[in-house]
Each structure stands twice: as structure tokens, then as C-alpha cells.
Design a binder for these strands. Structure first.
Lengths: 208, 208
DNA sequence: GGCGCTAATGTAACGCCGTTACATAGCCTC
DNA sequence: GAGGCTATGTAACGGCGTTACATTAGCGCC
């Protein structure tokens, strides 16, 4: 869309700005993305960024779009439809997990769900294979999609800070007769196991 | 803990600061909580706030603690354990929903899960009633808890901005033979229905 | 060449933010 | 009254997003 800039001297371009911004975020933090720091990284002045991408909001939009474009392809493995759906969901979960800053960015731009269309298409194919169509298939897709997104979001935010979000073991006056339960609740949350469990519950529900 | 301030002239106090900060956030936005604006609202200088609560981080901590204290009580309704658990989860969901800024605040402080201890205790009681104890009960509690939290977080962030996070109906090349599915996927997400569905799936799983 | 036009960059500022060094005022105890 | 502690106020620092404005570089064109 944007031609490679007519003038020969351009030290900067639309794409370079976005790429540098992404690098800045991935190497550090979302907070590290400030216009001044980005301009310093580019070796230019702040205003050039504004000329090229508008403002910070637009810049983040461009970053999200670029990152989402890199996640378009989907590969499915497994013999049964259920196995393939499971693999799809886990694959997508891991993929999101590997791009934690994409999560944060998309979160900031309300595109958390919009990034899921490739997965939606792949899921639809599998659901068709087991006879689920129309509204019922849509419900299943939405359920699985929300499950994947929310798992990653919750786990990422939970481990974002140094405080491990531990609960206070002394705060269950009503269940002192079940020490094993208290111990389990006091331990770190096993998000991966929780993800798998709820996924299976959803598949039981949808696939019967 | 904190005595009512010895001097008689104090126009400000620990509690007043926190209460005003909460009011500021609930009437506007989390972004509206700036130290200067808070001090203006209190009719005092910025430094007084720092004297009373330390810094912004500590202030938010206090706000979260205060809001959580207001949510401690739990009431359970329903005849069967399953009905009571359902009611519990929905009650917590609605309660969190009514305090959207609490979600944002707790999110910022990594206390999203820590606020759930009263609900955990109530759930444990119900699970004991159906024979689920120890580790199995903990898994169920964690699953339900994560489900409630993530539902609210996702829905809140999805409706935070004016862009409705709609997906692009033309982006499913593979499933053009199921117009009803495409229509359903293009419509607004019915989070409430998705919540109920996954909740039932989880209960099927845990309660057999 | 000189000219204007547009694209791109740079300078400097505005108003906001969180935070803090420092001075000041009120009140209590001696 | 003299210190001492509590509480408030003044003024500043550095950083943020953004913008008004000046400046430069490259282009076609006469």
C-alpha cells in the first residue's frame, strides 16, 4: 500500500517505525514504548514518528496488525476431530503465550478476540466434520475461543508482577477439616492443568 | 488500626484519601486517578497525599483492600448443591461486574485471584456436601474461580472501548457453506450465554 | 540555474504526570 | 518559650504525548 518512499534520503519509513516499536516492546516492556525512546532508537526526532504514523494510538494499531499478520497460518494435527480440536486450542494457546506483548497490545486495542479468525475457521472445519453446524457450531467456537483467550490473559497478568498472587491460608475458617484442600488452594495455581481440564469439559459438552 | 488522628485540625486522613480516590475512579475512570486531581478533590496539596499513603502504588493497594473488604459476605441460595454452586458463581460474576473498576484495580495489583477467598470457602462447603474433598475439590474450585474471573475480565475489556471488537465476516474462506455459522460468528458475542454454558460444562465435569 | 511544492525532519514548547527536596505551620510536651 | 512531631504547602525535576512552527531535502518545471 505505502510505496517505498520517493526520496532517496529517507532514514525512516512507515515499516521501520512499526518494526522498531515492536522490537522495543518485545525486548523490554509495553511501558518501554514511549515516543521519545522510540525516536531515540530510530536516531531521529520525535516529530518524524508523528509524521509517519500519526500518534501513539495509531502506532499500536499498526503494531497489532503486523503481529496478527504473522500468526495467520494454522496447522492441525491429530487423527480424531476431537484430538485435532484439542491440538488447535493448545497450539493457539502456546502461540499467544509466546507473544505476551501481543496479548497486552491487543488487549489495549480491544482486538483480543479479533485475532482469532484463523482459529475460528479451522475449528469450524473440525466441527463440521462431527456434524456440528450453524448456531451450535458458533456457540462451541465462541466457548473454546473465550477459554483460550482468557486463560492466557489471566495467567499472564497473574505472573506479571513479582507478587505471586498467593492466597492467605489462614482465611478459610469454614474448611479447617480438609487440610489437603487448604494445602492445594495455598499452592501456586497450575494454570496449564486448569486449562486442560476446562478444555476437556468443554469438549465433553460440545462433542457429547 | 489507625487511630482517628490526634490533631483536631486535620482536614484529611488516611481513610478520606482512599475513599475519595475510590469515588474518583468509580465516577470517572481509572485514568482519572492522578495524584494532583485527587489532591484537588480533597482541597489540599499533593504532598499531603504522599504523606498519608506513601505513593500511588500504595494508594491503589489500599483502595483494592477496602473494596475487597466490602465484598466479603457471601449468600448462597438453591436447594441442591449444584444449584447453590451455580448461584454462587453467578453471584460473584455479577458482583464483580458491578465493580468494574475493582476489576481494573485488582488487575493492576495482581489481586484478581486473591479476592476470591470468601467464594472459595463457600464453594468448598458445597463441594464437601457432594463428597468432593482434598485435591479434587481444589481443582474444581480453581476451575470455577478462573472461569468467573476471566469471563468478567474478557467481557469488560471487550466493551471498554467504543469499537465493538467485531470480527470481519469476509475472512472465513473455508466455511462459506455454512451461512448460519458465519452469521452467528459475525454477531455480537453473548458473553452471558457463554458464561452459563461453560459453567454448566464445568459442573458436569466436576459433579458427574 | 532559480522557483515553487511537497515530503520529511528538527526545535522548542505546552500541559500533564509521579515524585521529592525543602520550607512552613500547627499542636504537644517539657 | 523551646524543641519535636505531625501535617500541609511551594516549587521543582524529569518524563510523558502532542503540536505549532521553522527548517531542510528532493522533485519537476521554466
Amino acid at each position: 500500500m505505502s510505496q517505498p518512499a520517493k526520496s532517496a534520503r529517507d532514514a525512516i519509513s512507515h515499516e521501520v517505525v512499526v518494526e522498531t516499536a515492536i522490537r522495543l516492546v518485545e525486548e523490554n516492556d509495553l511501558d518501554a514504548l514511549t515516543m521519545r525512546r522510540l525516536s531515540a532508537e530510530l536516531g531521529t526526532a520525535v516529530t518524524s514518528i508523528y509524521w509517519h504514523v500519526g500518534n501513539r494510538h495509531a502506532l499500536v494499531d499498526l503494531m497489532v496488525d503486523k503481529l496478527l499478520a504473522d500468526m495467520r497460518d494454522v496447522t492441525v494435527g491429530g487423527r480424531t476431530p476431537r484430538a485435532r480440536i484439542t491440538s488447535l486450542c493448545k497450539q493457539w494457546r502456546d502461540r499467544l503465550w509466546d507473544h505476551p506483548h501481543l496479548i497486552a497490545l491487543a488487549h489495549e486495542r480491544n482486538k483480543t478476540l479479533a485475532m482469532f479468525q484463523p482459529m475460528q475457521a479451522a475449528l469450524a472445519r473440525e466441527l463440521h466434520a462431527v456434524g456440528l453446524r450453524g448456531k451450535a457450531a458458533a456457540v462451541a467456537i465462541r466457548g473454546l475461543q473465550l477459554h483460550v483467550v482468557s486463560s492466557v490473559v489471566i495467567e499472564r497478568t497473574a505472573q506479571r508482577g513479582p507478587t505471586t498472587d498467593a492466597t492467605d491460608p489462614t482465611a478459610w475458617p469454614a474448611i479447617t477439616d480438609d487440610p489437603e484442600l487448604i494445602a492445594a488452594l495455598s499452592a501456586q495455581v497450575d494454570y496449564r492443568a486448569a486449562f486442560d481440564l476446562t478444555l476437556e469439559a468443554l469438549l465433553d459438552r460440545f462433542l457429547g
